[in-house]
């Protein structure tokens, strides 16, 4: 039965249902229980933003607070995944990648290949991504391109609660290492979410809005900016299709090609910095594979080539806006 659920609660429900279903699922991270060893409540926080609140009461020691030591516990989650567990490790902010990236890209990502196909590493690393929280340069980045670049990792970045639940369940069940990116500015966003458990397969983009004049490709929070732009453009008679990639690795380029073949116009929206981004990657593939379908030069709407600023006025300028997306669409329509 469907009811309205926030992104945050959908994530919580997915973890809860998978932990109930599969006893080998465990979860670890800084403060995911919250308060271990402290004088107050044992289950005080349930994650820094309360996403895992209540799970400790149900699943007990299968949820573990960790020392502030990402290298060690992300590595331990990866090691445990090769030894029969199906761990979920929370890297509080993907920005903390720098202190544990080796375990992700040199270890988890490469085991299967380096070991000639003899290893499975079913680990899910959940991490908050994206700006808008006034959290400044080290807690706001969209580092999806860095992890998408790495063969052996799968990268998921849902735009809504329904997808978050289905994709997280798939991530936990998946036998490869998955980096599950949760946009912190979407946690409160609510949509209809079925109560029962369901998995959404990777590599299947979602058409968030159908349209005929231009194709806007986005993921995460940018899906909402793209849709907002599309609604505004519709008033001017421009009918945009919005494709929500949902998973960045694997990526569903077929849906993108199909759409661009019918619209002839491509706008890629990415909250990441512009160089070597998801936007530039999608644009390159479209240009290489279906160049003749294009009626206009593809447009990229991304954050600037700067760190994420702190001051709200600057951060609002940094994150791509619906207006910027609409401008880019109009630019492609002009030719």
């Amino acid at each position: 039965m469907a009811r309205t659920l926030s992104f945050k609660d959908a994530v919580n429900e997915a973890i809860d249902q998978e932990m109930t279903r599969d006893p080998t699922v465990i979860m670890m991270g800084e403060d995911i229980v919250g308060g271990t060893g402290s004088p107050g409540e044992a289950d005080a926080w349930g994650g820094v933003l309360g996403v895992t609140k209540g799970l400790y009461a149900k699943h007990g020691d299968r949820l573990m607070d960790t020392p502030l030591s990402e290298s060690a516990y992300i590595g331990a989650a990866i090691g445990a995944a090769t030894c029969g567990l199906r761990p979920i490790a929370e890297l509080m902010f993907l920005d903390f990648l720098g202190v544990c990236f080796d375990q992700m890209y040199n270890q988890a990502a490469k085991f299967r290949y380096m070991f000639g196909g003899k290893a499975e590493t079913p680990v899910t690393i959940r991490a908050m991504v994206g700006g808008g929280f006034r959290a400044a340069a080290q807690h706001s980045q969209m580092l999806t391109p860095i992890i998408t670049h790495v063969p052996g990792l799968k990268v998921v970045c849902p735009s809504n609660a329904y997808d978050a639940k289905g994709l997280l369940i798939q991530s936990i069940r998946d036998n490869d290492p998955v980096i599950f990116c949760e946009h912190k500015n979407l946690y409160a966003h609510e949509v209809d979410v079925p109560e029962e458990s369901y998995a959404i397969p990777f590599g299947e983009a979602n058409i968030a809005r159908e349209g005929t004049d231009a194709t806007i490709v986005a993921y995460g929070l940018m899906v909402h900016r793209a849709t907002e732009a599309a609604e505004n453009l519709a008033k001017d008679g421009i009918d945009c299709e919005v494709i929500d990639l949902r998973t960045l690795s694997p990526i569903d380029m077929d849906t993108v090609y199909e759409s661009v073949e019918s619209t002839g116009r491509l706008i890629c929206v990415d909250e990441a910095n512009p160089r070597c981004s998801i936007a530039s990657d999608v644009t390159a593939s479209v240009t290489q594979e279906i160049f003749s379908s294009l009626k206009a030069a593809p447009q990229l709407v991304t954050a600037p080539h700067t760190p994420v600023p702190f001051s709200p006025v600057l951060e609002d300028l940094y994150i791509p806006s619906a207006e910027q997306v609409a401008d880019a669409v109009r630019k492609t329509m002009a030719t």
Partner: peptide, 10 residues
Amino acid sequence: SPLACGAGLA
């Protein structure tokens, strides 16, 4: 070393 911790945890 972290991987061995994971093995111990498992």
